[in-house]
Design a protein around this nucleic acid. Structure first.
Length: 411
DNA sequence: ATGTCC
């Protein structure tokens, strides 16, 4: 069936799959995952597929999964509440120094980044978490602490995770902090991170519980990672509480980093400036209760952003590509959603095999960022063409600003 | 993505 803005696929015994992927390649394995997910008995109406769709764990990244009466912890994943924050400043390109090196160094000093293993062998190079957290962290943790004590009553092992020490820290992988310029040369700050160690522990714990429950009740699934928790059970209740807390942690994590990022920039640029002229803080990996087609349902956005009418969102490109600040059109067929990025075309291992440091240097020309062997998996060529991805979702969002990074800090 | 005490 053909529509103006999306295609519909329906597999035997499955709910429809509505795909905003016109002009964008979709892997066969991703289609198989979508077929599996669409056959779950508690999918509400249909699955909405964003143009950045690609293979994920259990279900595809770049999809919107509305459910009635159950939740799939592995669909939300382990980086619960992962998302983006961006803030426009009163600075312009000409206010930035010619040499951006010191600016990058100041940001790297102000925001802990990279992994933070707790094992003895890594002692002394624990750069990913706070040694002595600044006041912004204490203030934010004061708002999170009571909720954390509550979820620890049910899941005591969360007490042993990095939680307070990880608030306001970046992490690793595709998490980043950037200084960008928009189409009018205004300076923006932008960052990408989630709920760090504690969110990971919550995700892993409930993914395992769901798998156990499936075995206990002899429920067979095409993929273990589609294991679900039925509404009405204690595990479902506990998960909804814990995942909600992790999402709050992730949002505040980004806010704390933004504050420390601004303070770091002020140490390098003496000219006074204001921030949050426009500001967005959005999850792209989360689950929440929403109202759609007249019903209260759970909506899991696995690599997708909420795009209610007028709502602002962020669609980042890859390391050397443009990013977009978008405004939602409130498209109900997509459960008011849009893509969360360009989407990978190859795995991280494949990218590292195919490309060299020289390729990475060429692809990130003009950006003050790391260009070593450890970031080759983030090379722009390992991602889909962001312009094609944007074109495929014109019915979902309008572009408000186009951003290009000049400084990028990676974990 | 995290952390190597599941």
């Amino acid at each position: 069936m053909k529509h103006e803005d999306y295609d519909v696929v329906q597999y035997k015994d499955g709910r429809p799959i509505k795909m905003w992927t016109k002009g964008v390649p979709v892997e066969e394995e991703a289609k198989q995952q979508l077929a599996n997910t669409s056959r779950l008995p508690f999918i509400y109406k249909h699955i909405a597929v964003m143009p950045d769709v690609h293979l994920g764990k259990g279900s595809t990244i770049g999809s919107v999964i509305p459910t009635l009466g159950a939740v799939i912890p592995a669909a939300v994943g382990v980086d619960i509440g992962c998302g983006m924050m961006a803030a426009k400043t009163t600075l312009f390109a000409h206010d930035l120094p010619d040499n951006l090196g010191p600016l990058r160094t100041a940001i790297e000093k102000a925001i802990p980044h990279g992994m933070s293993p707790k094992t003895r062998s890594f002692k002394g190079r624990d750069k990913g978490s706070w040694e002595s957290p600044p006041s912004a962290v204490d203030n934010a943790w004061a708002e999170l602490k009571d909720g954390f004590d509550e979820i620890c009553l049910k899941t005591p092992r969360l007490k042993n995770t990095n939680n307070y020490r990880h608030l306001g820290t970046l992490g690793s992988g595709n998490h980043f902090v950037e200084v960008c310029l928009d189409e009018a040369n205004a300076v923006w700050f932008m960052l990408h991170s989630g709920s760090r160690g504690v969110g990971n522990a919550i995700g892993s714990h409930f993914i395992e519980l769901a798998k156990q429950d499936m075995r206990t009740h002899f429920i067979n699934l095409p993929d273990q990672d589609l294991a679900y928790l039925p509404e009405g059970t204690q595990h479902y209740k506990d998960y909804i509480e814990a995942v909600g807390w992790a999402q709050k942690f992730a949002r505040m994590n980004r806010e704390v980093m933004m504050l420390n990022l601004i303070a770091a920039v002020r140490t390098v640029i003496s000219k006074p400036f204001e921030t949050h002229i426009e500001a967005v803080n959005c999850h792209h990996n989360y689950v929440q209760k929403e109202h759609h087609f007249g019903k209260d349902v759970l909506v899991t956005r696995k690599g997708a952003v909420s795009a209610r009418a007028g709502e602002l969102g962020i669609i980042p490109g890859s390391m050397g590509a443009k990013s977009f600040i978008v405004r939602g059109k409130g498209n109900e067929e997509s459960f008011h959603s849009c893509s969360h990025g360009a989407g990978r075309t190859m795995s991280r291992t494949a990218a590292k095999k195919l490309y060299t440091v020289a390729d990475q240097i060429a692809a990130t020309e003009g950006v003050e960022c790391r260009k070593d062997a450890n970031v080759i998996d983030e090379i722009p060529m390992a991602y889909k063409d962001i312009d094609a991805v944007m074109l495929a979702q014109t019915a979902l969002v309008d572009v408000v600003h186009v951003l290009k990074q000049v400084v990028c800090v990676k974990g």
